[in-house]
Write a protein that binds this DNA or RNA. Structure first.
Lengths: 180, 180
DNA sequence: GCCTACATGTAAATAGTTACATGATTGA
DNA sequence: TCAATCATGTAACTATTTACATGTAGGC
């Protein structure tokens, strides 16, 4: 399981921790996390909410009409269990945290994440990227036989991007440590 | 259909255009295209080869033993139809060409791609990325209310990466034009 | 003798997208 | 009145991963 839904629960708990929201609004907020090109579809969101209802992490309230008399909405809010779950997740550092999706979501809720854990997450991500970059570098060093020159150029560019992210993380880690 | 298998056929045709290969070897070559972290699994590769056999794009030959007496392998090679298909794909510029995966694969076979088409592909990709970056920039300009500062930082970094790719493409386009 | 790489596949489970269905409200 | 956005979902399809199954050859 290295799917989006893994980080989705965390993200939803995080969003709802700031106050109750309905599905449509949750989707929009998710867009600010994932960016404008990877919108969360309703057919993923609603079943996920149902799962979380079953697990008693959230509760639903039917709102017949909002202040501006809209269509009735279903408003979700965290239960005590949900809040506890979020807290424990905030303090944990699962291996998934260092993957692309996982990291992005963790980072989106970095403000409410305990200080010392922030550094751990950044360091883990850093380690992971350094390892990957190393592999790509070796790979690049050994292939250039017969392979299209353009492809090599492309891979070099990709490696540079990875290196830039590493540098960025290093800056982040430094500034986090300073604020400790 | 915006899946990997869309570009997969192109990639396989491209690889086989240089000479006959067997499945296992094709997988390894694909790794040099997609990079070391997105290996093509056999359960995608073999059915794809079967599809291409049915479409008469490739032919199979059973090799009982290679020069070094290995297990019998199935060697695939392009048919005349397959070669024609590849040629026509090389000269075409489908919209898919400008997507991440599609572009990567097209780029991997840029050498054998007709000169004028290379520029078209690069320009299309450039246009696409500029549009996307513009959207992200606007998005970034309007959200900073209440959103976690860390997240904003992350998005800014992502935008910079996109901008770097745009610059890279511009360099590529310039050097392609020069060689025309 | 065991581990790794070679070599070819199938089956089942999971994940994800797209199309469909329905209906309210708001602004041009 | 017409399109866009709000709002909640289901069904069908497509894609991808993981586990299974089987066997060979070479190096340590």
């Amino acid at each position: 399981m290295r799917s989006r839904s893994e980080s989705l629960e965390f993200a939803l708990l995080g969003l709802l921790s700031q106050g109750p929201l309905h599905g449509y609004e949750l989707r929009k907020r998710m867009a600010t996390i994932y960016g404008p090109f990877r919108a969360l579809s309703f057919s993923v969101l609603y079943p996920q909410l149902r799962k979380m209802l079953l697990a008693k992490l959230i509760e639903e309230t039917f709102t017949s009409a909002g202040g501006l008399s809209r269509r009735s909405r279903i408003v979700y809010e965290l239960t005590k269990t949900g809040r506890e779950k979020l807290d424990s997740l905030m303090q944990s550092v699962s291996p998934d945290t260092f993957e692309d999706e996982g990291f992005e979501v963790r980072f989106a809720f970095f403000g409410p994440t305990p200080r010392n854990n922030r550094v751990k997450i950044l360091e883990g991500r850093h380690r992971k990227l350094v390892e990957k970059a190393e592999i790509v570098r070796k790979d690049l060093a050994k292939i250039p036989e017969g392979i299209d020159t353009y492809l090599v150029e492309w891979r070099r560019h990709s490696l540079e991007s990875a290196e830039r992210e590493i540098t960025w993380l290093e800056k982040m880690i430094k500034s986090e440590r300073k604020s400790l």
